[in-house]
């Protein structure tokens, strides 16, 4: 054994390094890691509160815009959420209660997203071939001139 002193020393050194590494690891593992599985459980709550919901649904819009809401509910757009065209609620009513007027695309492209005749849309869905629907170039045409977006008639 007397000729294996260096072996004993190197083995001791390795064991010390491993022990230090193991102890250090104990301090570095997050508190809630492993509570329910190999992940940090606290993150679940962080994810729940990552930001305030931006979309609030038509019921929220109705609070201030009852006329539009009533018209929408009676018409064919009753299943189209206000936020589809007007953008998310949170961009309109800020967290501190202040109101920003959202910019709404009033050109034909807004309506064309759903109603332009395009390959892929279900056959029963109301669609128009823009070039046949209007006379002259499509650019610059305003659907809203004839159709009421909140309760369009066909």
């Amino acid at each position: 054994m007397e000729h294996a002193r260096h072996v004993v020393r190197v083995v001791l050194l390795v064991m010390v390094v491993l022990a230090v590494a193991f102890l250090a690891r104990g301090f570095l593992v997050p508190r809630s890691y492993g509570m329910y599985g190999p992940y940090r459980y606290d993150n679940v709550r962080e994810q729940m509160n990552v930001r305030r919901p931006a979309h609030a649904g038509p019921a929220a819009c109705e609070q201030c815009h009852p006329d539009e809401a009533t018209a929408r509910k009676a018409g064919v757009h009753r299943n189209v959420s206000c936020e589809v065209c007007h953008g998310p609620f949170a961009a309109h009513v800020k967290e501190d209660g202040s109101v920003v007027t959202p910019t709404v695309d009033r050109s034909y492209t807004l309506c064309a997203r759903c109603h332009r005749k395009v390959d892929g849309r279900p056959a029963g869905f109301p669609q128009v071939v823009l070039e046949e629907h209007v006379s002259g170039p499509v650019e610059g045409k305003v659907c809203l001139g004839c159709h009421n977006p909140h309760s369009p008639k066909l």
Partner: peptide
Amino acid sequence: LALGTYDIGPEA
């Protein structure tokens, strides 16, 4: 580097 042991005899 030698960890303080200089034994390089045949047995070592």
